[in-house]
Amino acid sequence: MEVTFKILRYNPEKDKEPHYEQYRFEAHENMTVLDCLHKIKWEHDGSLAFRRSCAHGVCGSDGMRINGKNHLACSTLLKDLNTKDTITIEPLPSMPIVKDLILDMTDFYEKYYAVKPYLINKSPVPPDSERLQSNEDAEKLFESAKCILCACCTTSCPSTWSNDNYIGPAALLKAYRFVFDTRDDAADERLDIIDTPDGIWRCHTIFNCIESCPKEINITWHISQLKKELSNREL
């Protein structure tokens, strides 16, 4: 079958503004959007720039806007899209474009670093063995630990769109990952960090983030657990 891709292109050395370019080519319904981008790059226009690595939805490199929805190019198959119409590919919204589909993700990473995304444990560890943790407690972390930092959620969030400083769902999810780890001793420090005007309270439970998460993480549930924890703390 023939498909048409309309891609938002931008080369800072040539273009004043981003603009769309169209590509029509032969494709198969089992191809992913990433396969198609490669086809365009490898057969038509070598200058098309995008990030990618694993090609199966685990490295988080290729989050982009596909027909208006945030998703990973490598996990979106043509058969899941309406290929009769033009397929529109744009970079994720609300981050500065560097070139074509490549964004400057500095701000996204800064917010992730802000929640102290590492285990802080103040008690001595057993010398020759692991700390014990029930499988139940461990599994409470697994959902949040699945995150691949693709930024699909944060850039789909209306609160992010209206306020650049909002910490965003990805960072909140990371905060959950450590606040609820039975081995961690810095829950309070992290809760202080997110309990700010640009922190967790900007989340109005609008669910956009969940819909765009390629790992199908129930982000809002995790955020609500953090909100509960904060309310309990105040009581």
Partner: peptide, 14 residues
């Protein structure tokens, strides 16, 4: 584990 890696656990928590 000490660095914080989340592992699946046995019944005893190992």
């Amino acid at each position: 584990e000490h660095m914080g890696m989340p592992f699946s656990r046995t019944k005893e928590g190992k």
